[in-house]
């Protein structure tokens, strides 16, 4: 099995993602977008970065690249897909997942550690946590504010499609703990099926024991399901 980590022009978390996945025992491969998905792809990661220089909107160009048609088909066939940061923006721009990630409320690029509360522990990406667990992951984004019409967000909440919410270290979702002004403090959501998910915080940057915290490993372990 091979997890394809798709590299677009401007991706910059692609090698980190491969390294994190390999350190956990996964077979992971960098895939240049123009080369298409390898035949033995059993998982797909859309890594962070600034694909196409964030032209037009973050993720807009990559979302319309031909490989994303293959990603959509693979997702529909049950292949797990995880988009992180710019990969999350690409996921929403390509309608793999609902909503949009847009300019932070602060209008600034924010690079810091945040706390996240696990909202639904019954998805592949969260099943190794417990519901309500508080984890710490890094964020690094200028366009991470989750936006979606209120009625759609209520539906997502009711359907258990919110993976994580920004919270304080005690697990309380407060305006102060919301780093980018995301609606309902949403940090990650699933697509129509929960094997497709996107999140702005970086699990792959908190997965190597040599670098400290490994709170992100359980997210990446979702590729094993």
């Amino acid at each position: 099995m091979t997890i394809a980590v798709i590299r677009f022009g401007g991706s910059n978390c692609d090698r980190d993602s491969v390294q994190a996945l390999e350190s956990m025992g996964f077979d992971a491969e960098l895939v240049w977008h123009a080369d298409g998905l390898p035949e033995d792809t059993t998982g797909i990661m859309l890594p962070g970065g600034f694909s196409y220089g964030d032209y037009l909107r973050a993720g807009a160009m990559a979302a319309r690249s031909p490989i994303m048609g293959e990603v959509r088909e693979a997702a529909a066939d049950g292949t797990p897909v995880l988009g992180v940061c710019n990969g999350a923006q690409i996921g929403c721009e390509s309608s793999l997942t609902p909503g949009a990630f847009t300019t932070n409320e602060s209008a600034r690029f924010q690079c810091e550690h945040v706390h996240l509360r696990v909202e639904n522990a019954e998805t592949p990406w969260t099943s190794r946590y417990g519901e309500g667990d508080v984890i710490e992951l890094p964020i690094a984004h200028g366009e991470g504010r989750y936006e979606i019409p209120d009625d759609r967000l209520d539906e997502l909440e009711a359907e258990g499609r919110i993976l994580f919410k920004y919270c304080n270290e005690d697990g309380e979702v407060t305006p102060e703990a919301n780093p980018n002004g995301s609606k309902h403090a949403v940090a990650g959501v699933t697509g129509e099926c929960d094997h497709v998910a996107v999140m702005m915080p970086h699990p792959e940057r908190a997965s190597l024991e040599d670098l400290g915290r490994t709170d992100g490993q359980p997210v990446l372990s979702g590729f094993a399901d």
Binding site: L56, R64, C92, E93, A100, E147, I148, P149
Partner: peptide
């Protein structure tokens, strides 16, 4: 519809 605007926002 397909690129210039994002209908969500």
């Amino acid at each position: 519809e397909r690129l210039l605007a994002n209908p969500t926002i």
